[in-house]
């Protein structure tokens, strides 16, 4: 099982890397085609020249994806064994043992976890700061460098740098917050305790107070009102030409909408 898990994980990482590389290559290819084309930026020859490299990467990625699918079915992982999630159907004894174990782990390693958290906090803050600084520097570079708008090549580079720098900043922030977010065992323990209440017939279920539920009637009234208004709007729209306006726009290729200018 561990060997299978290793193979699955390695496949996953390699697929991930190839997917990212293919994606970046496609985007870079598009920019390169545009920049190198001269008078005819997206000529068939230019597209053919660059696309074949991307196609090779794409085929490799596809093969790895197919391999991953075959791996999943031919050598399935027993997820129950790998995951330590609470099973609703465990007996009371097992639930109690699990709870005790978690409490013990918490007590013994509390200090250790706190120390590690402080260290990781410093490391991740440092890393996030570097990534964010790089991103901000890229944006400043893109905006301060004197590219005139008529210089199309420069414009494309500027936009690409801006886009990638935004991605850097966003990625940096997400990374920083993800590392910093507290991994709490409290929710899992509360969930286990709730399950214990259900599984344990000696402990009565918590009493829910009886309340008169007026909500369904109000919700139904809101629904009926909104549906009536919607139908009235549609009928009104048909009579005042709204429907033919939609048809007129929809049967024409909106070159703006699909990025063709």
């Amino acid at each position: 099982m561990k060997t299978r898990l290793k193979i699955h994980n390695i496949t996953a990482f390699i697929t991930a890397a190839l997917v990212i590389i293919t994606g970046i290559s496609l985007a870079a290819c598009c920019i390169a085609i545009y920049v190198s084309g001269g008078d005819q930026p997206f000529s068939r020859e230019a597209v053919g020249k660059y696309l074949k490299y991307v196609m090779i990467q794409g085929v490799a990625t596809l093969e790895l994806v197919i391999f991953g699918i075959v791996l999943k079915f031919a050598f399935p992982l027993d997820k129950e064994k790998l995951r330590a999630k609470p099973n609703i159907l465990v007996t009371r004894k097992k639930l109690t043992e699990k709870l005790q174990k978690r409490d013990e782990i918490l007590l013994r390693t509390d200090e250790k976890i706190n120390r590690e958290k402080k260290y990781r906090k410093k490391m991740s803050l440092g890393l996030a700061s570097i990534i964010t600084a790089l991103g901000i520097a890229s944006i400043l570079f893109a905006t301060l460098i004197d590219y005139s708008v008529s210089d199309i090549n420069g414009y494309v580079i500027k936009v690409s740098v801006f886009a990638f720098s935004l991605a850097f900043i966003g990625g940096g922030l997400i990374y920083a917050y993800d590392i910093l977010s507290k991994k709490s065992y409290k929710r899992e323990i509360d969930a286990l305790k709730s399950l214990l209440v259900i599984a344990n017939s000696d402990v009565p279920a918590p009493e829910m107070p009886e309340t008169k539920d007026r909500k369904p009637a109000l919700v139904n009234l809101a629904r009926v009102s909104i549906i009536t208004v919607a139908v009235a709007f549609i009928v009104l729209g048909i009579f005042n030409g709204g429907m033919s306006d939609v048809l007129g726009k929809a049967v024409r290729i909106c070159t703006e909408c699909i990025g063709l200018g």
Binding site: A27, C30, Y34, Q40, F42, A163, G261
Partner: peptide, 19 residues
């Protein structure tokens, strides 16, 4: 003939779509 219409907008949208 649509290839003539490709420009910075398409580059941006294509890169965004891929991302």
């Amino acid at each position: 003939p649509m290839f003539e219409m490709l420009g910075p907008l398409f580059t941006w949208k294509f890169a965004l779509m891929i991302s």
